[in-house]
Design a protein around this nucleic acid. Structure first.
Lengths: 249, 249
DNA sequence: CGCCCTTTTGAGGCATTTCAAACATTGTGG
DNA sequence: CCACAATGTTTGAAATGCCTCAAAAGGGCG
């Protein structure tokens, strides 16, 4: 259990030398090697730069290799919603497969690198590398579950519960990448957290304060330490011990 | 424009005689024919019956042939969220591809029939019928966009806007199936609408009343007529003419 | 015909937003 | 290196949209 790192490692080169290999959606077949045509890291992409924008024609899918990003959608009436935050190993662009044009935009939260997977059609993708294609579809289906769970949280959970759930989600994802589950740095501003959870920035700020006052977390700017994981889970609505579970709606 | 039917037609037999063919996710390749092994209609499934439940192992994907259904998820803390309503031609079960177990449950809202597409693995599915598989993945990706849009609505739109958007969504989907866009029957109770939009039943009831009072719709139990489509769109937040569009969050 | 489920209506409460302003932080140019 | 501007964060007080609670009316079905 070497889980005390609080920042993602960064390497260059092919998959075999990739620090994010362990949690990479591509890491499930022999295609993940330093062969010609295999996925490879891009050059560094700066914070604020877009990988693609809503409406862009689908040219490639991407896998985040290092750094972090957010994807968001714009509605016809000018609303904007951050659909997800992304960390190394995660698939970007799946939702463009519907009609070959991106239905969301992706922008980096910090300097990052990514692997580009050129795309032409499902058929060619599958023919070229069946395992790769299979892994991508499975990752897409998982994203669907995440989206649904997020929708449930947005509609039915209180502000604290959503917020606690957000921290736990980050905790788990960092943990899965070999980083600490209880201490990490947020790569996004409060505003982005607020938008993602559909809360006012002020509310997010207050929630940080409340959880800290309750001894559940310790916050310093973007640095977060989880002091009472069980309490945080309880707050998020996850049954921890033998609690009375609330009936839905 | 023969769009004056207010109920979905029902037929039996193969794809070539399917009344829902025009809007079917399967209708994009030669696999959609009355060959051996091609998709075929099931016997009638009664209202309240489940096709599969959250946690069930993935054995097949389904396409709704007639009738309507809802899919919902249960959270660890007992909350339940209706993720989507389904109409003829739509794909069911995509989210199970992530780890081969269903992440949601599907139950019929009225007596229905569906086509079963046995599933073993992405590879076998693709090998057996590349076009079918391609169509399914594309449908899955489109569902992702829908889920994201729904999340945006849940978090950032007011109750009326969500409700109006819901009616417009139904309107469009009925229209795409050759039914009337302005007059239709709801196949789900108020409670289900409320849950899907994350509102209280009482609120939904009041919203029906409000829109009717405003002359925008006419309601009689589950029968709905849209009297002022443009007003409804405005209410939903869609820019109709040259309106001031609100800045997002 | 009567029971039960669905739908409607009313009144009050509360979680979260909105508005307003101070404060901290980072980056920039002098 | 410091002043200044721009951005990000925190805190307080008032406003509000939707929910909760309570109860009655309407329809469907045995």
């Amino acid at each position: 259990m070497r889980a005390n790192v609080i920042d993602f490692p960064r390497t260059s080169g092919g998959c075999s030398s990739c620090a994010s290999r362990r949690s990479c959606v591509l890491n499930s077949g022999e295609f993940c090697d330093d062969r010609a045509g295999a996925p490879h890291a891009s050059g560094p992409i700066a914070r604020g730069e877009h990988i693609y924008r809503q409406g862009d024609r689908l040219e490639a899918l991407y896998v985040l290799r290092s750094g972090s990003a957010k994807s968001y959608i714009d509605s016809e009436d000018g609303l904007e919603q951050i659909v997800a935050f992304h960390f190394p190993g995660e698939l970007l662009g799946f939702d463009a497969l519907g009609d070959d044009s991106h239905r969301s935009s992706v922008v980096m939260l910090e300097t990052a690198t990514l692997c580009r997977v050129p795309y032409q059609s499902c058929s060619s993708a599958f023919s070229r590398s069946p395992e790769l294609w299979t892994a991508l579809v499975r990752a897409g289906a998982r994203q669907m579950s995440v989206a649904h769970a997020h929708g449930l949280a947005l509609g039915q959970k209180t502000a604290v519960a959503r917020f606690a759930g957000f921290l736990l989600d980050l905790s788990a994802r960092f943990g899965n990448r070999g980083c600490s589950r209880v201490e990490f740095n947020l790569s996004m501003p409060r505003q982005d957290i607020a938008n993602h959870l559909s809360l006012a920035v002020e509310t997010v700020s207050r929630l940080f304060g409340d959880l800290q006052a309750g001894g559940i977390i310790a916050v310093d700017r973007r640095h977060v330490r989880i002091l009472a994981l069980d309490e945080l889970q309880r707050t998020a609505g996850y049954p921890v011990a033998d609690e009375p579970s609330a009936a839905g709606n």
